[in-house]
Every structure is written in structure tokens, then in C-alpha cells.
Simulated assay, not measured.
Amino acid sequence: MTEQKQDETGSAGYVEPGSEFTRDTHYIATRITADGRDGYPVESGRYRLVAARACPWANRAIIVRRLLGLEDVLSMGLCGPTHDERSWTFDLDPGEVDPVLKIPRLQDAYFARFPDYERGITVPAIVDVPTGQVVTNDYPHITLDLSTEWTKYHREGAPELYPEELRDEIDEVAELVFRDVNNGVYRCGFAGSQSAYDSAYDRLFARLDWLEERLTTRRYLVGDTITEADVRLFTTLARFDSVYHGHFKCNRNKLSEMPALWGYARDLFQTPGFGDTIDFVQIKQHYYMVHTDINPTGIVPKGPDLSGWLQPHGREQLGGRPFGTGTPPPPPQSGEEVPAGHGA
């Protein structure tokens, strides 16, 4: 019998007996575009991004929204770090109801559009506020569309995260990182057999070694500025030592024991828009409390020591311009800050 698994998107994957974890990548393909070709044109104030700080896939959207300065255009609702088999919930809000959508569970927005929706209730999701209906949960396209379709509303000085002349290389690198790293840690953690785990483990660390070599001589993954590729890798690296190393048995070595990757991760963490979105407390609560098949006691570890994230990284010597000809984003808006004591 196929065993269902949920990662922190609340999604869907499955493990055949004695086999490997397979992610369900069938998302709602509707897109919000400048020309509105899918029936959802880009409009200021119309949509709400629903995310969770615990989730690396949703964390991407939180970062890109910050970097591009879309906070006043695209509101954001945050779910708590845990969910049940039904849905993510708005348990961080007063009355445990989203103050804009007026719903207690994200599934309500999915069912408003698709009453018989049977797939995972995932974050990130963008909801059409006037109708209360989910528009899309296609997380790879969400961030790309924020960069390419929402340009009318980008802040002055916003970086170009998906420059046209680098898109082929960004896509190529991002696909390798997704296959072996972003999703690779889950293939380790949810493996259904020793051989499946061993294979996923070997692919993960072979790719991390490849990234270590690549980042030894260059500051960013593609080109000399931050791009979508860096956003996608960072959210996995930010969770590696706190969660994946122990919880998912990705334990050949820690991130902090790989000099180039550790310096690269600290460089991004200390860049406005990245580290100020990371909530280590919620990250650990989610993984260790939700994945009861892996951690049946639900005990959340106290470590690791996070002070290293703020140590000098020395990556400036490699050159590069984090925001190209642009500028860093301002500090997070009031109410969107990571709670005190939850960061590094």
C-alpha cells in the first residue's frame, strides 16, 4: 500500500513500500499576469499571499516579495508552524482567523474555488480577496511571476532576480538544486528503504560538493548579483543544520563544515530580505512536531547554536553586487518582523 507523506507545504507526496519519496508537483496552474490572460490580472490590493515561515517553498515567496518591495501591493497572511491532516491554520492571528480573508483554515479558500479539491492544501498560495478563492499554489511560478509580471509595482531600486539574458542558466541551476537539494533532503528524510535513502543521500551530497566548488570562486550562483537561483537554494541551506542534518538524516557533515557554502549562506542571511525572514523557532517546531512518524515524541531540540549566522563571511572579496544597480529593501514592515528571539 502506498504511504502518504506530507512535507511542510501540507502537500502531498507518497512513498511506495520499500521505495523513495515522490513529491506531488501537480499544483493549481492559474497565473496572475500583467495581461490577465488567465482571468486574474495584476492589481494592487486585490490578492493576498498566504505563507508560513516554517516552509522553505513559502519562504521563497516571502523573500521575493520583500526584495521587490511589493508589501503595499500584495498583502500577506501567515499561518502558524504546524498543521493537521486537513490544512494550515491561522492560529497566529487573533481568534485564529485571518484578518483579511476572515477564514480559520487555508482550505476554506481552496474549497471556495474547488469544492471537491482533493490534493494537498499547500503554502504558498495566492488568494483573490474579493471572492475568497485561491488563485494559485504553483510556488515556482509565483516567485517568477512576482519578478516578471508585477514589474509595474516594483519598488525603486528593486533587483532584477530573473534577468532575461541569464534565464537559461538560472533555470538549469535551479533544476539541479531542486532535484538533488531542495527535494533531495525530503527524499532522504522520507525514504521508504535503506537503498532509497542511500541513493538520495549520495545525490544530495554530490550536489552540495558541486555547489561548494562552484561557490568557492563566485559569490552568487549565476552572474554577479542575487537571482532567483540564490533564493531557491538559500531557503534549504537556512534549514540544513537546524533540521535536515538530524531530523532527515542528512548527516555526512553540517553546512557549517562546508566553507564556501557556509560563507555563501551567511552572506545571504546578512543581506536585507533574507535572514530577516527566517524564524528558526517555527522551522524547528514544524518539522519536529508535524512529522510524528519520524519524531514520534514531538520533542523539539534546543540546538544548534545560531550565533554563527551573524559572523563575518568575507565573501565581499569575490566581488559581485548583491542588488546590481539597485538597492537593499527597507526593514520589514510593522507586523511582519520575525518575533524577537526567533532569529539568529
Rank of each mutant, 00 (worst) to 15 (best):
V15F: 07
V15D: 07
P17K: 12
E20L: 13
E20Y: 01
T22P: 06
D24W: 12
T25W: 14
H26S: 15
I28E: 10
A29V: 07
A29K: 08
I32Q: 08
A34H: 10
D35T: 11
D35C: 06
R37H: 14
D38G: 04
D38F: 05
G39R: 10
Y40H: 02
Y40S: 02
P41L: 15
P41H: 07
V42W: 03
V42K: 00
E43N: 02
S44E: 07
Y47N: 00
R48V: 01
R48P: 01
R48I: 07
R48D: 00
V50M: 02
A51Y: 01
A51P: 01
A52D: 05
R53T: 03
C55T: 12
P56M: 04
N59E: 09
N59W: 00
R60V: 09
R60K: 06
A61G: 09
I62F: 00
I62L: 05
I63C: 06
V64D: 02
V64T: 01
R65V: 12
R65S: 09
L67M: 05
L67R: 04
L68S: 07
G69I: 04
D72P: 06
L74A: 05
S75Y: 05
G77L: 11
G77I: 04
G77Q: 06
L78Q: 03
L78Y: 07
C79A: 15
C79V: 12
G80A: 12
G80K: 00
P81K: 07
T82D: 13
D84C: 06
R86W: 09
R86P: 04
S87N: 06
F90C: 06
F90R: 04
F90A: 10
D91A: 12
D91I: 10
L92K: 07
L92P: 10
L92W: 14
D93K: 10
P94D: 15
P94V: 15
P94K: 13
E96D: 10
P99T: 15
L101Q: 03
K102L: 12
I103F: 13
I103V: 13
P104W: 08
P104I: 08
Q107M: 12
D108I: 15
D108T: 14
Y110Q: 11
F111D: 13
F111Q: 12
A112F: 14
A112K: 11
R113T: 13
F114P: 04
D116F: 09
Y117V: 14
Y117C: 08
E118T: 08
I121H: 08
T122H: 05
V127Q: 08
V127F: 05
V127P: 01
D128I: 05
D128A: 00
P130S: 12
T131G: 08
T131Y: 07
G132A: 13
N137I: 06
N137R: 11
N137K: 08
Y139P: 03
Y139N: 15
H141Q: 11
H141L: 14
T143Y: 04
L144R: 09
D145L: 09
L146G: 04
L146M: 14
L146P: 03
S147H: 06
T148R: 08
T148P: 00
E149R: 01
W150D: 01
W150C: 03
K152M: 11
K152N: 13
Y153E: 01
Y153F: 11
H154G: 05
E156P: 02
E156W: 04
E156I: 07
G157V: 03
G157E: 11
